[in-house]
Amino acid sequence: MRRGEADTPFPSVAVAGPVTRVRLADGEHAWLATRYDDVRTVLGDPTFSAAGDPMHRATPGADAPFIGRLPHTDPPEHSRYRRPLGRAFTPRRVAAWRPAIARAVDDHLDAMAAAGPPVDLIESLAVPVPLSVVGALMDLPRHDWPSLRDAATTLLSDAPDREKAGATNAWLLEYLHALVAKRRAEPGSDLLSELIEHSDLGDMEVADLGATLVLGGFDSLAASIGTGVALILCHPDRPRALAGENERLDPLVEETLRFTTIVQRGVDRTAVTDCRLGDAEIRAGDRVVADLPAANRDRDRWPEADTYDPTRPARTNVAFGHGPHLCVGVHLARLELRIVLDRVLTRFPGLKLAVPADRLVLCRDRTFAGLRELPVTW
């Protein structure tokens, strides 16, 4: 049995191959890109537009504003939204948050230790850590955090209840819009205040960016933390010795991101002109879907790509996307995951699964595929 296949909840993905014409679950036809180089082309070349993503064509409440100006616009409009965020998420700025993130992680690990085993690590660590980081970054009232989590759960489902999702979409935008109006009148040191001060964005545009950060910055990290720890526990012979060794933690983090690739839903683009992608002749208006998990298992780039190897030399992957829409919080995400994995391995060297690995369920019906629960003991 090869590591990374039947002994974990992370099965092999489709083998990367030529760009292929496929029929999708929604009945539409599209070109599917699975090879690493083809996926990077789709995500990075202006020939392929992000503005026509069908996810938003199907957004409930079509007459209401939808969340997504940042991921679903093209330059130069996209640049206008991204530029003030880029200023806030530079590597230097993110590095300054390390002590606060470490405290948040340690607080939840303390609570785990006090509660005693077994615990569900998703509810004890994977969810509350990124939620507290996003909440502190944007100075969101703590009593609202559960509602924000519920909103993310609803809006990031692949098949949401349309009426509920429409109401949730409207509530989240109205909630952030009210906070933005308050921060414009009384600026603070939080991210919303910074976006107001250092951009020409209107209140609803800042609210939209804030909602995007709540959805992506919380839910994606919760999924990454849960799957990252689970991957280590399914392979107890490999990464335990890496705790505390800074130069060896980076390959562990990158291999975790590559191997799990939590963005399971294909990334949609629309060709704006006739073009060639690999051997395929793409016509203007054609829908093209980039498969990130397949690209991150491309055997031409990673030998034994279906094997989890935390000592594998780190190479650039597309777990966070590529090109103009590369995740703006990539440095923060890597830092959070690095701190969590290091501290979990150090604090609980005897941590192990409390159930057989084949009992773990990977929820693939969401934008970010995370584990439903992760029972652990020590």
Rank of each mutant, 00 (worst) to 15 (best):
T261L: 06
D300T: 14
P130T: 02
M55P: 03
A50C: 10
A114Q: 15
L209T: 01
G370N: 02
W145I: 10
L121K: 02
C275E: 10
L155A: 08
P75A: 14
A104R: 12
P236F: 05
L173Y: 03
F10E: 00
V129M: 08
L191Q: 06
A113E: 15
G4S: 10
D161S: 12
R183V: 00
R364L: 03
H235N: 15
Y81S: 00
L85R: 12
A51K: 10
L43R: 01
L125N: 07
G4T: 12
R276F: 11
V13Y: 04
D208Y: 05
G210I: 00
A354I: 09
A223I: 05
N317R: 05
G217E: 02
P160G: 11
I101K: 06
E123Q: 14
A369F: 01
A230Y: 06
P11M: 07
F89R: 02
D219A: 13
S199Q: 13
A207Y: 04
V344N: 02
P54I: 07
P356D: 04
N317C: 05
V39D: 02
W31C: 01
N169A: 11
D74Q: 07
L345N: 00
T34N: 08
R343N: 06
R248W: 01
A170D: 13
A230W: 07
V344T: 07
F348E: 04
E186V: 04
K164Q: 14
L242R: 05
V13F: 05
I232V: 14
A136P: 02
D342R: 07
K164I: 06
R98N: 07
G17T: 07
R80D: 01
V22M: 08
F218S: 11
A230M: 09
H108M: 03
M204L: 15
A14M: 09
G285C: 05
W31L: 01
R40E: 03
A151V: 03
G329D: 05
E28A: 09
A223K: 02
E255V: 04
V180H: 09
R87E: 04
A241E: 12
R69P: 06
L371P: 00
Y308C: 04
A319C: 11
E197G: 15
M1I: 14
S199Y: 09
T316G: 15
A51R: 14
M204P: 01
V39C: 08
P356T: 06
T90I: 06
D53K: 08
L353A: 02
V253S: 03
D158V: 13
I282F: 03
T153A: 06
M204A: 12
F48T: 00
E197R: 15
D107H: 09
H143A: 14
L24D: 03
L242A: 01
V263W: 00
R364K: 12
P303D: 13
P187F: 01
M204N: 11
V288C: 03
D26Y: 05
A62S: 14
V39Y: 02
L125H: 08
R276T: 15
L337I: 11
A294S: 15
